[in-house]
Amino acid sequence: MKLELPRITRTTLALYAGASGDHNPMHIDIDVARSAGMDDVFAHGMLNMAYLGRLLTANFPQERIRSFSVRFSSITPVHGRPTATATVAKVEDGLTHLDLTMTLEDGTVTLKGQAVVEGDVAA
C-alpha cells in the first residue's frame, strides 16, 4: 500500500496550521525558524501522520483501525515530497499489524509507525 503525496508548499503548511489548530510558527514563519537556527520552515509532524492516516482509511474502513502510532525521526523540509507506505507485518488473532513508513525523494525516512486493523487484510 502506497500513497505518493504532492510536494509540500508553504500554502500546504499555512492551510494545515489553520485547519489543525497547530499554530507553532516554526512551520509557517521563516523569521522564527531562522531565529531558532533552522534554514527554513518545515512540515508539521502531524501533517505527515495525517497523510499516513489517509493511506490507512483509503484501504480500510476507519472504524476497523484499533491503534495507530508513529515515531518521528527526521523533519520534512518545505518543498519535500513524501511517500507513505504500509506493509503487512503479521496477521494474528483476527488483527492485521501494519508497518508504516514515510520517506522523502532522497530516501530519508521521516517517520516509522505501526497500525493495528481489525480483520485479515487478505480477506
Binding site: 507553532n24 510558527p25 516554526m26 522564527v32 531565529s35 531558532a36 508539521h44 509532524g45 502531524m46 501522520m49 476507519q62 472504524e63 483501525i65 484499533r66 491503534s67 495507530f68 502510532s69 508513529v70 515515531r71 518521528f72 523533519i75
Partner: peptide
C-alpha cells in the same frame, strides 16, 4: 520554548468512531 520543541512520538488507541 516552542521553537525548541519537536514532536517525537504520537499514538492513538481508538475505541469508538
Amino acid at each position: 520554548d516552542v521553537r525548541h520543541v519537536l514532536h517525537a512520538e504520537q499514538s492513538f488507541i481508538y475505541h469508538r468512531p
